[in-house]
């Protein structure tokens, strides 16, 4: 129960924070620009393809896949700005000591903060990007399953990314250090995907650890158990590290 209490408190903080809205607006603006480009490109392509006797793209290939891929990258660029304060701010202001003295476990604190952040992110995605499925339904024949698959990928990525943010926020009391660490981990994991093209051990590492490799298949309407496992493990591990850090703060 205490987890949900912390989550409610965290969510309330985000909903009353001008900075969170500012970050959300910037995220949705960039996402909107890319959506506009992708939509326009698809409409042009699909109208010209039959003239040349070519097979056009499906809505998954032409809109959902590129949009999902772009949203993933924008999300991991913006996430650290939202997550950097989660625990670092508490440590810096001294309110962490107060929190730790309350009858609440480290796990409940970390899980609560992560859940609050995730709820805010889901609200942001629903309100800010809800127009995409609406448009595809009203003006096109977009099937539901690929959109749900892309949404699942985005939620898993948001979960793992915010968990990494909570973890790095637990490692330092400086918000900027937490944000930089978070960017390094998330972008590093994203870039590792490019190693997949190489042969040998580097290629194998890229294929197994690369964030993009595991994320992009959701946008292609392909759900794989290993991709789900990757995100669940990354989220669990990050939250576990954060719990250990908070726990060690309790004893230090």
């Amino acid at each position: 129960m205490m987890t949900f209490h912390v989550a409610r408190r965290e969510l309330r903080h985000y909903l009353r924070s001008p900075f969170a809205y500012l970050v959300g607006a910037a995220f949705l603006f960039i996402a909107g620009v890319f959506f506009g480009l992708i939509l326009d490109n698809y409409i042009q392509l699909s109208s010209s393809a039959p003239m040349y006797g070519e097979q056009g793209l499906t809505i998954t290939q032409g809109i959902i896949e590129p949009l999902s891929s772009t949203l993933g990258l924008i999300l991991i660029l913006f996430l650290p700005t939202l997550t950097m304060r989660v625990l670092a701010e508490e440590q810096r202001s001294g309110s962490m000591a107060l929190l730790l003295s309350a009858p609440i476990s480290s796990t409940e604190i970390v899980l609560g903060k992560w859940l609050g952040l995730m709820t805010f992110l889901l609200l942001l995605l629903m309100v800010g990007l809800g127009y995409v499925p609406l448009l595809l339904f009203i003006y096109g024949d977009a099937p539901l399953a690929p959109q749900l698959s892309a949404l699942l990928g985005l939620v898993l990525l948001a979960g793992a990314g915010s968990a990494v943010g909570v973890m790095t926020s637990s490692l330092s009391d400086q918000q900027i250090v937490a944000a930089v660490l978070s960017w390094m981990i998330l972008l590093g994991a994203w870039i590792l995907s490019f190693l997949d093209s190489l042969e040998g051990p580097m290629g194998a590492i890229g294929a197994h650890i690369g964030l993009m490799i595991h994320y992009e298949s959701f946008g292609q309407a392909l759900i794989r158990s290993n991709d789900i496992a990757y995100f669940v493990l990354a989220t669990s591990f990050s939250l576990f590290v954060a719990v250990q850090r908070v726990e060690s703060n309790r004893w230090s």
């Binding site: 998954t60 399953a145 690929p146 749900l148 794989r224 158990s225 290993n226 496992a229 493990l233």
Partner: peptide, 17 residues
């Protein structure tokens, strides 16, 4: 666990075609 998950992954293909 990730290594085990990568060995024989289950796949659900929801694409149009």
């Amino acid at each position: 666990l990730l290594h085990l998950a990568e060995r024989e992954p289950q796949r659900w293909d929801h694409s149009e075609n």
